[in-house]
Nucleic acid binder design. Structure first.
Lengths: 137, 137
DNA sequence: ATAAGGCTTCCCATGATGGCAAGGTCAAGA
DNA sequence: TCTTGACCTTGCCATCATGGGAAGCCTTAT
C-alpha cells in the first residue's frame, strides 16, 4: 500500500511517516520503480505502535527503545516496566509543576475582583516578581 | 547596568533579554557609544514581570498583553482576570490530558509483573492486540 | 600592554508537527 | 490517447522558547 493508505490505517500522518524514516525510527520503506514508498501490514502495525506510544506521551527517543523491546522476544518485562514508570514519573512531575501554576493563578484570580477598576492583585504580583510572596502576604 | 547584571537582577538570561528585544516584547535598550546595552531599574522590573509570567506558564504573546495592561493605568481588572482564567483553563486541560496518560500507563504498569520474563501487557497494548512481536510468523 | 572576561551579532539546534511549492506518477474517464 | 485530479516526491520554512558556539570588539584589572 502507498503512504497515504498506511497513514490512514495507522493514524500517523504521511508527513510523520517520512519523518520517522528520515530520523531512523523506522527502517526505510521499499520503493516502487517510480519512487513511491510501499508499506505492508507489518509496517502499519509498527506505525500503530508508535502512534499509541506517542499518545501516551513517550518521546521518540524512548520509542526507539520500546520498539527494540517489542521486537526482542527475549526481553525482560522489567525493562519495559521501568520505561513506563519513568514516563509516569516524568508526566507526574510536569503535572505537579503545572498544578502549582494553576494554584497560584487561581489564588490571584480569586483575589481580583475583575471589574472596571484598574486595581488588580494579579498584576501587582507579576510586578513584584520574585520579591513578593503571592500566597502568604 | 550591562546586560549581564540585568540578567542576574531579573532572573532572565542575557540571551533571552536580547531575544525579547528582537521580537518586540520589550523596547530596544539604549546603548553605550560602543554598542553595549544599558539597563535601568525600570527595565529590570519589566524583565522580572516577564520572568514571573513565564514561570506561571504564560506564553510570550500573552505576556505582550499583560505588559500592556500593566502599563495601562486605566485598565479594567476584568481584562487581566480573563487572561489569568484562560491560562488556568489551558493548564488544566493539559493537566487532564497528561493525567489520562498517567492513568493508562499506571494501569498497564500495574498489570506488568516486571520480571525476567518477556510477557508484558504494556507492549501488548502498544502493539494494539498484537502478540508482542511485529512479525507473527 | 596584556590577559581575562563581558559584550556584540549571526548561525544552528532542539522536538514533533504542519504547511506550502514545484514537479513526477497513476488511475479513471472522455 | 489525452486530460484531469488525486496522490506521491523532495525540500524549505515555521512553530516556541531556549541554549550553544564562533568570530570579533570592548572593558577592566593587573
Amino acid at each position: 500500500m502507498n503512504i497515504g493508505e498506511a497513514a490512514a490505517a495507522s493514524g500517523v500522518s504521511a508527513k510523520m511517516i517520512r519523518y520517522y524514516e528520515a530520523t531512523g525510527l523506522i527502517p526505510a520503506a521499499t520503493r516502487t520503480g517510480s519512487g513511491y514508498r510501499v508499506y505492508t501490514g507489518t509496517e502499519v502495525q509498527m506505525l500503530r505502535f508508535i502512534r499509541r506510544a506517542r499518545d501516551l506521551g513517550f518521546p521518540v527517543d524512548k520509542i526507539v527503545t520500546l520498539l527494540a523491546l517489542w521486537r526482542d522476544r527475549s526481553r525482560h518485562s522489567s525493562d519495559v516496566k521501568r520505561l513506563a514508570q519513568d514516563q509516569i514519573d516524568g508526566l507526574e512531575r510536569k503535572i505537579k509543576e503545572m498544578q502549582a501554576m494553576v494554584d497560584t493563578l487561581q489564588h490571584l484570580a480569586d483575589a481580583c475582583c475583575g471589574d472596571h477598576r484598574p486595581d488588580c492583585p494579579i498584576l501587582t504580583d507579576l510586578g513584584h516578581g520574585a520579591t513578593g510572596a503571592p500566597s502568604r502576604g
